[in-house]
Structures are given as C-alpha cells and as structure tokens.
Design a protein around this nucleic acid. Sequence first.
DNA 1: GAGTTTGAAACT
DNA 2: CAGTTTCAAACTC
Length: 605
Amino acid sequence: AAEHKQLDATQSTAESDWNEWERSGRVASLAVCAAFSRYGNLNGPPHFSSQITKKPPVSTAGPMITKLIITKALNNKGLSSPASVAPVVTGRVVTQSTPVTPPRTLTIGETVSTVPQNTSGNSKVAISPLKSPSKLTVVSVASQSPNSPQKSVTLPLNVALGQQILTVQQSATTSPAKAGTSQSTAQTVKTVGGVGPSQFKTIIPLTTPPNVQQIQVPGSRFHYVRLVTATTGSTTAQSGGSTNTNPSIQSAKPVMMNAAVRMSVPIIPAQSIKQVVPKPLMSAAQVVTTSQTPQRLIMPATHLPQIQPNLTSLPPGTVLAPAHGSGNMGYAVLPAPYVTQVRIVPLCFSTFSTATPIQTQARLSLNGLSTSEATSRPRKPCNCTRSQCLKLYCDCFANGEFCNNCNCVNCFNNLDHESERLKAIKACLDRNPVAFKPKIGKGKQGESDRRHSKGCNCKKSGCLKNYCECYEAKIMCSSICKCMGCKNFEESPERKTLMHLADAAEVRVQQQTAAKTKLSSQISDLLTRTTPAVISGGGKLPYTFVTKEVAEATCDCLLEQAEQAELTNQPQAVAERLILEEFGRCLRRIISFAGKAKTDCPINC
DNA sequence: GAGTTTGAAACT
DNA sequence: CAGTTTCAAACTC
C-alpha cells in the first residue's frame, strides 16, 4: 500500500496518456503465449537463450503464471497435430474435448473454466492472430504438473482491432482428481472491461518475476513483449519433461508470422531463462484501488486507438484492484518501453551466466535475423555525446527505447544503468508529465488532422526544414505554433513546391533501390550460374541455361504431373514416378536447347 | 567528414 | 514565464 501511495504521488500529475501511448505504437502490443511450466518446452531456436539480467528464475509453488504471446497473423505450421487446430474457438478456454462453442465476452472477476477430461499432463495453447482470425497457431506447452489436464486456450484476438484484455492464470496445484470438477484447475481467461470481443487488452499476472522480452516484428511498427515466467525450480524442464506423453509438445515449432510479417518467436523453456523485468516506472503508478495482492501488468495487444475507454483512460502505472471474488491480483498499467529490455546470448556461451551486456541486448532472433536487422520500424541510431542518452535530446530515450546499435558516447540508456535511467525518466516526468507523450497527436475534437501537441517555435527555417517538428512530422503548422515566417501551411506555394520535390525524390529513391536490388540479384544469379561455364571445352554446361524462367516452367510441369496424379487418384509411388519422369523430360529438353544454343552461338554467349 | 545552423530541451 | 545555455539533429560545403 505504501508503494502504491508513492506511485500515486508521482503519477498523479501525469495526464492519462495511455491512449496516446497506444496511438503512437509505443505501448507494448503484448504478445501472449501461454502456459509454460516445469515441463514446458516451447522450443525456439535451441541455440538461443534469454539472458536474465537481474533476477534468477524463482521457484514458486504459488499460482502458475501463464505466459502468453499474442502474435499477429500466424500460420499453423509446426502444430503438433492438425486436430489441435480444428476445434479451436476464439474467446474461450477449451479443453481438447470441448465442443466448439461461440466466443463470449468475459468480464473481470468472471471465471470461465472448462473441465478437462484428459489428464495427459500437457497443455496446448492455441494462439490466434491479432488481425487475422483465419489463421491460428497452436503452441504446445506443458502444464506445470505432469498430471495436470490437457487444455487448449484460444485467445480471442480480434479480427480487425485486436484490442484484447486477457488474463490467463492457471492453478499450480492441479491434480487429476480435481481436474474434472474444480474450476481452479482450469485456465481462466478474463476479458476485462466487459466490452465486445473486438476490444481487448492483455493482462499478464506478475505474481512471479516475469521475464519480458521485447520483440520487434518485421513489418510491424508495434512492440511486442513476450513474457516468460519461471514457474518452478525444477530442472527437469530443460530435458523436456520426462512425463510429457506428447512428443509433439517437445518439438513445438516457433510461432511463425505469416504473410508480410514473418517472425519466429523463439520460445524458451522458462527454466533456461534468467531474465527479469527491469522494474517498471513505478513512480508513475496510480492506485485506483488499494490491494495487498500481487500486481499485474496490463498491456494492450495492439496500439489501436479504439480501446476500452474504461481501461485505456488509465495512465501508465495505474494499479487496478481486482474485483471481489475474481482472484487476488491487482493490475498495473505501464508503457512497454519501460518494462523491459532483452538480452539474448547464445546457449553455446552460457545459459545462465555472463551476460553479454549491451552488445546483445534487445536482440531477438527473428528467423535468424536480429531485430536490428529485421525490424521494419527502423529507428535512427542516436549520436549523443554529452547527454548520456538520458535526456530528451536523445531520440531513443525520448521514444522510450533503449539505445541499440547507436553511436552514442557514454550511453546510460541501457539496462546496465537502469537506476540512472529510471531517475532520468522520473526527472523528465517531473519537469513535464507528458514528456513521453507523442508530440504528434490528433487535433481537438472534430479535427481529424494530426497536429503537434505543443506547436513549433521556429524562427528561421520557415517551418520548411526538418528542424521544424511539424514539418518533420509532415504536418502543417497550426494555430498553437509560435513560429515566425511560417511557410508550412496549406496554401503555401513554397510548401507545395517542396512537397512535389520531396515526392519526386522519394520516387527516385524507390526506383534506384529497386534497380539496385534487381541488379544485385542478377549479378548474384550470374555468378552462381556461370562459374562452370569455362570448363567443358569452353562451352556452357546445360544447367547454366536453367534460368529462373526455365526453372519456373519446369516446376509448372512437375506440378501439373502432381495434379494429374492426384486427380486420377494415383498412389503416391506412382505420382512420384510420374513427377520424376516429367523432370527427366524437362532436363532433356533443357540439355537439348543448351546444345542448340552452343551450336548457334559460336562466341559462346 | 567537418563545420554551421537550427530549434527543442534544459537550465537559470 | 522569459531569457540563456546546452544539445543533437539537420544542413551546407
């Protein structure tokens, strides 16, 4: 309670910026994934492990914390069984034997439980995409107890908005005997706020120190946070759990993003992770209702603006008390950038120790790429030299991000200087409670255009250079600007000229980029295809004629054979033979034309 | 790449 | 709150 009071004192001056945080995409789009336990083995790339920087995993006999990853569009590759997908219904906690029922909206304090029939000891958590309900990913996990029932949880991530509020908690002391009758043995999914299924947030319990991993997703400008919480001190988890009867659980594939967003989320056994969440900016907390119970984080699944007003109006740091009878947990709301920072070290170095501090922080493996390589929201590296990156001069700091791959000198904007960083954040908020609020927001009510929240103060640039924050944000100056000689208004001819020039330049850059890419591809292709051309008497070998077009045509032929075989219900062996024969014919044709080309072209072109 | 200009942030 | 200083990005050469 005392802590809450303190939080209240510091945050009470801050306006409710939650919506702004979300609008800016700086609040964690919370990735949810589920139910890790001592036997959990959501295996990501085996050579990676999150490095906990502050606290080791805590063994607890208390309520099991379920780890969730809400992802965007997903595919269902890596499913242990297609059957796991079919019965999945969003919005419910279901057992594998639970028949399909429509999603429903749950309210805080409400517990929806299903009675597990199966006590195989494995849980399956189906994770639905944020925006595409048509694709699901099921991540196999194991429950804490080897005897705990098999479950599937499908998170009702919304089709269009993906605003979800979910709480998933699971009893740690599930026994098979009780599993069939007790609600405490079932996972509980709560939708806070009691709104329609289109709007949710994600609530992650914090009863044990969760490990939060910040994930940057290619193609997404949102931050994702993955929570991985150690639930027991058992060391058997890393060996995969001897009592796990479902081998597929051991081999669950990383969650894959589909379409443009392809991301492999390495999911690591909780026990192998030695990471804790850096303390959130608790000085900015606000106690809504006091509670002596553990706190939880509330983080939105996406940044989308149409979020539940009753929750989104809460400022970061808000602590919510639970509804009576809903369990003994409070909730805290905070912006993701101040939640955590991730460190990943290869397992080959060490699983638990010797963090490689800054170099590896905030990098997660995304299909083999580090986030710095894969992120689609490139942030310019800062070059701060004197501010230690702890003042708003630093763009990274101002954006609530840790410095990563920057060129800064004497940087304190990292986990190694977390206390200084938190002090600096507090100082900034003391000076300006909305210091971290995006400067570019919606205008007044009724105004659809974006506008600078404070307005600019330009004097010499005419607000037509990037010195001007309005111009830089590609918005026009407004009445609240105090600029002099402003030319950044709708009818300004200078502005129009600049815009045209900028557009033309952008087109040129795109064209050049495309040309470079094509050229690079062609060179690469040429290098791989022509290397052996000098042998064999100076003539090109036939396979050097396998151009992309030829390869595609060949594939078409093979596919056609496959389809024919399928249509005529040929056995697989026959189908394979047909395809191989077709492949042989294709090769013969290529060789034949290659020979002709050699004959026809005396200069060996 | 070095030096200059600019305006926001920080300070007084 | 206004004036000044500091700072890092934008810009120019």
